[in-house]
Design a protein around this nucleic acid. Structure first.
Length: 833
RNA sequence: GCGCGAAUGGCGGAAUUGGCAGACGCACUAGAUUUAGGUUCUAGCGGGAGACCGUGGGGGUUCAACUCCCUCUUCGCGCACCA
């Protein structure tokens, strides 16, 4: 027997067989219960990393387990293949994005293939293919026809480095999420999707997503940012205009000491024009306009602002308060104006401190000295300095004051969201063309369905400079109006790639349909995705956009599902320790710049794919961070060799010529123990791998099983039918984790049938009932001794046996037993004085 | 500041319903096999001489707490001048 099993030839052999036999091709079988397991499709960067391996290994275990358990499993793969890197490669190396992407997909597909993943490749999709983006364009037109897509001139987030606009969601701490360049504001006419129409539904339906991590739901809730408050109308002294502000704290109205407008508020220029305040105010506005989002939202800086020379009149007490402008008020939230209550809002408190404005407390908060405030008192309390509301709890006052304002026509209840409409225009080449046409007579008109897809032109220069690359095409721009037939111009921006990935899971259900986006019958059979797996970095963007798309697709009657993903598993990062320049040991996400990367190919060459998969699944629960350990990989490799030797030893030395074994007869204690662990392992692996996705403990139990089998073959009397059952069980339950080695061993045992098609075993509950059990004996809850007694021994009998044990006798001799707690087959606990 | 989560041996982690804390693996130690190294196999492996003590700290509930309640600390992640 060889020292180490030959993983290289075994893995290649089975990958080729699965491919040739189309082993994982899936057909709609409407009588069979379906299971749709999906891993987030990758961007084809060309290189597979450990994060991918982890993601796809998790999905593959689930897919293989569910298939063996009798489900009709849909497990597809594809490519999120539009996006900037391809275009940057074109600018840098002169390769056309199409070539670059094609090449990378080819490379990555080979790498995926080498992982032995059970995909149905006949359903492969790639978002850059015209047969895919045709339907992305078609969907956009459906949004447009339903009033959910519009073009608007707005200040937008602009990344000067990527030369394109960004969605709100793509701005991280004021910087471009891709290149970290500070984002600036620019006025541009852009296409938007009206996701805000779905704000409430996106928020409320989160409650029903029980299979989602709380963290992700919390992040989406936070992002939608619903807040309920009141719009209050202040009149302006010496002007016949009202100033409307939005507040969630109408109870603090009596504490208003000034007002603040956003610098961009239209009143500002109007009120200051020709006054002595004009130049200072204009200077301030200029300063704000030149600040990046990062500078403007920085928390550490002191509050700044300017008085604009006007006063507002408080509707509840007629008090005159000054109006300021300051950049801590945002034009695009609420009404772009606030009432300031420095006593109860920290930002107002800071501003009032800088500008020496009054601070009037109106809510008495427990434990706060209102006469010497050092910070705003935002907590709950009792109303003071508030006329007839004095003495009322401030929560009640919110209701009473809102109601009264509403009655008097001075205010109305209002709901605000942080969620903005989704800006989807990109001044880029490598994306889905927006299928809209501008006609001087008809305005914006969608391209006719018959003319879809609007193809990306090939005669385009990649300079990385100037406006949208599509402008440089001689063929693309000019067209005729689909409505009136006059000469017209195409939209030259492309779509945000997040549109492409917001519906790909639907296309998998009917990937090769040329006539429709998909057949609804098929979609209704497969959807929703039963288990979605991917990184938590998509918690907001991709996962919220996809929910929005699914809701819309549901609304227009194309799918019965209104949520795309029933269950979501967010896998943890793959990290590795390294020593920094000061020789500190640091554990961080694998990254090229830190030099702590382990490439999948390296591990596959040294130990094989099965070892790589096994280690990744064993080292940590899937949602937790996984620290790479070379020694740990060795351990997994050692285990697989141990399995290989055990089975080969069985085939070559133990089994003999007999192949067909009858149902095992079990009588001896060692046989009973082996039968016990066979069934206990089936139970454990089924629950851990198929239910709660704790692959680490499932694998641990298989390792215990193997340890027990090694012990069993030490005994001279081997019950062949039983041991044969143990060997077969081992190979089957290990198969979803390490498919190649198990498939090989299955064949070596003499099986004609493929292992991946084998039925998952059911455990025999009666085998789990032991004849004798170990019971622990406690005194006052502390462990004192143990004894082995027959299963299901009565309380009185167990108590009596326990008292006869020497240790217990000694411990009890001078004590009075107050009571005895008995847990059948587990515990006898004497409570003594 | 708001939200989510975590803290268990030298390390990764287990304990699913409150019932033997440390499964399984790594590292380590000793022995066997081997010319030797590696491989493999066997045994040991929280602390303490011991009574006992041990799941971040303190308190509580309970016959019994890693698990439930209160409180504090530390760390990770996400969001954040959103009125």
């Amino acid at each position: 027997m060889q020292d180490r099993y030959d993983f290289k030839s075994i893995e290649k052999k089975w990958q080729d067989i699965w491919d040739k036999e189309e082993a994982f091709r899936t057909y709609e079988d409407y009588d069979k219960e379906k299971y749709y397991v999906l891993e987030m499709f990758p961007y084809p960067s060309g290189k597979l990393h450990m994060g991918h391996v982890r993601n796809y290994s998790i999905g593959d275990v689930i897919a293989r387990f569910k298939k063996m358990s009798g489900f009709n499993v849909l497990h597809p793969m594809g490519w999120d293949s539009f996006g900037l890197p391809a275009e940057n490669a074109a600018i840098k190396h002169g390769i056309h994005p199409f070539e670059w992407t094609n090449h990378n997909i080819n490379d990555m597909k080979n790498q995926l293939f080498s992982l032995g993943l059970s995909y149905d490749w006949s359903r492969e999709v790639a978002t850059y293919k015209p047969e895919y983006y045709k339907w992305t364009q078609w969907l956009f037109i459906q949004f447009y026809k339903n009033g959910l897509a519009y073009k608007k001139d707005n200040p937008v987030n602009w990344c000067p480095d990527c030369n394109t606009v960004l969605a709100n969601e793509q701005v991280v701490e004021g910087c471009c999420e891709r290149c970290s360049t500070p984002v600036i504001k620019k006025h541009l006419s852009q296409w938007y999707l009206k996701i805000t129409d779905y704000a409430d539904r996106l928020l409320d339906d989160l409650e029903n997503l029980e299979g989602w991590p709380d963290k992700v739901k919390a992040m989406q809730r936070n992002w939608i940012g619903k807040s309920e408050g009141v719009e209050v109308k202040f009149s302006i002294d010496c002007e016949d205009k009202d100033l409307v502000v939005y507040t969630t704290r109408p109870d603090t109205l009596f504490g208003v000491t000034y007002m603040v407008l956003a610098p961009e508020h239209p009143y500002v220029k109007e009120f200051t024009k020709g006054t002595k305040y004009e130049s200072a105010v204009n200077t301030y506005i200029e300063e704000c306009a030149h600040k990046s989002e990062l500078e403007r939202t920085s928390l550490t800086k002191d509050k700044t602002g300017e008085f604009i020379g006007k006063y507002a009149i408080n509707p509840v007490n007629g008090k005159k308060v000054p109006i300021y402008i300051s950049d801590y008020v945002m034009m695009d939230y609420g009404t772009g104006a606030i009432m300031a209550v420095p006593a109860h809002d920290q930002r107002d408190f800071e501003f009032a401190t800088v500008f020496g404005l009054d601070i009037i407390p109106v809510v008495k908060v427990d434990g706060v000295d209102l006469d010497n405030l050092t910070e705003a008192a935002a907590a709950e309390g009792i109303m003071i300095n508030s006329g007839k509301y004095n003495g009322m709890n401030n929560k009640q006052a919110i209701q009473s004051i809102s109601a009264e304002l509403e009655e008097q026509g001075l205010g109305k209840k209002s709901i605000n969201y942080k969620l903005r409409d989704w800006l989807i225009s990109r001044q880029r080449y490598w994306g889905t063309p927006i299928p809209m046409i501008y006609c001087e007579h008809c305005g914006w008109v969608p391209e006719n369905d018959d003319n879809l897809p609007v193809l990306l032109p090939t005669d385009v220069e990649f300079t990385g400079k100037g406006s949208s690359p599509l402008t440089s095409s001689k063929t693309f721009r000019h067209c005729t109006c689909p409505k009136c037939g006059r000469p017209a111009e195409r939209e030259i921006d492309t779509m945000d790639t997040f549109l492409d990935s917001s519906w790909y899971f639907l296309r998998y259900c009917d990937a090769n349909n040329d006539n429709h986006i998909f057949d609804s019958t098929k979609v209704n059979y497969w959807m929703n995705v039963d288990q979605y797996i991917g990184g938590v970095e998509h918690a907001i963007l991709h996962l919220m956009y996809s929910r929005f798309f699914q809701m819309f697709i549901n609304d227009i009657g194309l799918s019965q599902s209104d949520e795309p993903f029933r269950n979501l598993l967010t896998q943890g990062m793959v990290t590795k320790g390294y020593y920094d320049s000061k020789n500190n040991y640091i554990v961080a996400k694998m990254s090229k710049s830190l030099g702590n990367v382990v490439s999948p190919a390296e591990i596959q060459n040294k130990y094989g794919t099965d070892t790589a998969r096994l280690f990744i699944l064993f080292a940590a629960p899937p949602e937790k961070e996984l620290e790479w350990s070379d020694a740990g990989v060795e351990g997994s490799y050692r285990f697989l060799n141990r399995v290989y030797r055990l089975v080969m030893d069985y085939i070559e030395n133990i089994r003999g010529p007999e192949r067909n074994f009858s149902e095992p007869q079990i009588s001896s204690t060692t046989d009973k123990n082996l039968n016990y662990i066979i069934n206990a392992t089936i139970k454990k692996v089924s629950e851990d791998a198929g239910g709660r996705f704790n692959f680490n403990t499932a694998i641990a139990s298989i390792m215990e099983f193997v340890n027990e089998m090694y012990k069993y073959i030490q005994s001279k009397e081997i019950n062949l039918p039983l041991f044969n059952k143990a060997i077969e069980t081992l190979i089957i339950v290990l198969n979803p984790f390490t498919p190649h080695i198990t498939e090989e061993l299955w064949q070596l045992l003499g099986n004609e049938e493929r292992l991946y098609e084998t039925k998952w075993p059911e455990y025999d509950a009666s085998a789990l009932i032991k004849d004798e059990v170990e019971v622990i004996i406690q005194i006052n809850g502390k462990l004192k001794d143990k004894m082995t007694i027959p299963n299901n021994t009565e309380k009185e009998v167990a108590e009596k046996s326990a008292k006869e044990l020497d240790k217990i006798k000694d411990a009890l001799c001078d004590k009075e037993i107050l009571k005895t707690i008995f847990v059948p087959n587990k515990i006898v606990n004497f409570v003594v004085k």
